[in-house]
């Protein structure tokens, strides 16, 4: 069952889709003197860029207050990277989730809300440290991370695999079979593969450093091209991005 009522008003006063709130820019507004200015459009039509930036600024101001922070279950930020836009999600315990843009943002946030609580907000303050360290990583200035992790999105053997990933150093790789053996469970090659494919914190838990015994890549949450890019990047065959 999906929850549609959120997106609909009791009485739709304009035919435009509610999603239009997110995308309309100033360009879409009739300028002065262009004719056809209907007051209803300004009252209930798509948000202007000015309105979007105003609510974002007001929300950020509220979230920056100390008493607001403790109301938040998880905070996320969208950050650009050479691997495309990343969503970074943190809680008061640490980094919970990194998502590539191969995943729907709403699906990532729903997964987060179901695991840690519904108060999930966009906020650049709480994610600042993680975003900074990832920026240094992509700039070639950082090879390991100094970030507390919140592992509530994983459990059991998968969690064991994902935590062991942190032992594979920058620039080197291991096979799925080697990881299974490393964990004392040499028959669990397939389970290692699944754990890598479902890694909630790629890059920081470097599942990209696990490859097939024949050298081919295997599954990656961000897709084959991103895995290739990050392995090439760590092998030093890519120019550093500024």
């Amino acid at each position: 069952m999906t929850r549609a009522p959120l997106m609909t008003r009791t009485v739709p006063t304009t035919p435009g889709p509610p999603e239009g709130f997110a995308s309309a820019g100033l360009d879409s507004q009739p300028g002065p003197g262009t004719g056809g200015a209907v007051p209803e459009d300004r009252l209930s039509g798509p948000a202007s860029a000015l309105e979007e930036s105003m609510v974002a600024a007001l929300n950020a101001e509220v979230l920056a207050r100390g008493d607001a922070t403790e109301l938040v279950d998880a905070a996320y930020t969208l950050m650009p990277s050479p691997m495309g836009e990343l969503v970074v999600v943190v809680t008061d315990r640490g980094l919970l989730r990194i998502g590539f843009d191969t995943e729907e943002l709403s699906a990532v946030l729903t997964e987060v809300a179901e695991a840690v609580g519904p108060v999930v907000v966009e906020d650049s303050g709480m994610t600042r440290t993680v975003v900074a360290e990832l920026g240094e990583y992509f700039a070639g200035e950082r090879r390991s991370f100094d970030i507390a992790l919140d592992l509530r999105l994983t459990r059991g053997f998968r969690a064991e695999v994902q935590q062991a990933l942190a032992d594979i150093p920058f620039g080197s790789t291991m096979s799925y079979a080697e990881m299974a053996a490393h964990l004392g469970n040499p028959k669990a090659v397939r389970a290692v593969g699944t754990a890598c494919a479902k890694n909630p914190i790629p890059l920081i838990l470097p599942c990209h450093r696990i490859v097939r015994s024949d050298g081919s890549f295997g599954n990656y949450r961000g897709g084959h091209d991103r895995k290739q890019w990050v392995l090439d990047f760590e092998a030093g065959s890519l120019p550093l991005t500024g």
């Binding site: 948000a47 309105e51 609510v55 987060v112 907000v121």
Partner: peptide, 20 residues
């Protein structure tokens, strides 16, 4: 059915609340 993430409410309703 769990509640949707709060962020979904913000995206859907915040501009309307400001206008109100």
């Amino acid at each position: 059915m769990k509640k949707p993430p709060f962020d979904e409410l913000v995206r859907t309703h915040s501009v309307r609340i400001l206008r109100f």
